[in-house]
């Protein structure tokens, strides 16, 4: 088996007294699409934030291709891309400028033809010189994906990329995710559309109240539960865990 691209060891994250992640360990392997499922507030974004530098874990360590995300943050951040859950955009810059700036911030020499080809890929070419605020919600989301790719990350995080997105764009994003994987990018996505995970993911992790209930390949998970849908399996696990918490 290939060495893991991502390795989280005993990661705990507390916000004050509240524990958002409890002693979580997880490995993600090169070239796979890993789907992290879980109800709202399970800690999916928190985990991604600890890996990408938006938050700092309270305990435990995280490595990307063997580099520690705290001590070797300059190396790991070059390897990782993030499409955040919240749409943020800079009103001062156009899509083309935003991409050029993001390249530079990621430590890559800004390259206009690379920026233009990304705009092309995400169907934003005719908006490249528009004020970003005049873009539709779907366009802004596509710009966020393009921004996350400017430095050719080896490991890409998509945090609920399809929430609030129409069917057409959702299909387009799924296609893009498949293409990226084919090109060798490892992908971790969070979602609460179970259907999305069922369609895309090689492996699935279910997170609930800061704990991983299960990590398993999609195939073996579906096989083990003979003929039931992923949604049924998911709901049963969550309900069982809720019962355990209540007890």
């Amino acid at each position: 088996m290939k060495p893991p691209v991502l390795c989280c060891r005993h990661v705990t994250k507390r916000y004050g007294k509240f524990t958002a992640l409890k002693d979580l360990s997880l490995e993600v392997y090169e070239g796979e699409i890993f789907a992290l499922l879980g109800p709202n507030g399970a800690g999916k974004s928190t985990l991604i934030h600890c890996i990408t530098g938006l938050a700092k874990q309270t305990q435990g360590s995280i490595e990307v291709l063997g580099f520690d995300t705290v001590n070797d943050f300059r190396t790991t951040r070059r390897l990782v891309g993030l499409v955040p859950q919240e749409i943020g955009y800079d009103p001062f810059f156009t899509p083309l400028e935003s991409l050029m700036i993001q390249m530079g911030l990621m430590g890559v020499e800004p390259n206009r033809s690379r920026a233009e080809s990304l705009l092309e890929t995400f169907a934003l070419s005719d908006k490249r010189d528009a004020y970003t605020r005049t873009l539709s919600g779907g366009m802004k989301r596509r710009l966020l994906v393009a921004k996350a790719l400017v430095h050719d990350p080896r490991l890409l995080f998509l945090d609920e990329p399809t929430s609030g997105v129409d069917v057409e764009l959702r299909r387009e994003l799924w296609q893009e995710v498949e293409d990226l994987r084919t090109a060798g990018t490892t992908i971790v996505l969070t979602t609460h559309y179970i259907e999305e995970a069922e369609k895309l993911a090689d492996r699935i992790g279910i997170l609930h109240k800061g704990e991983l209930l299960l990590v398993e390949s999609r195939e073996s998970l579906l096989e083990r539960h003979g003929g039931r849908s992923l949604e049924e399996i998911y709901l049963e696990l969550i309900h069982k865990a809720d019962g355990r918490h209540a007890a």
Binding site: T52, R74, R77, L82
Partner: peptide, 8 residues
């Protein structure tokens, strides 16, 4: 976020 995820 753009700066926080960057090697800066």
């Amino acid at each position: 976020t753009d700066i926080l995820v960057a090697p800066i």
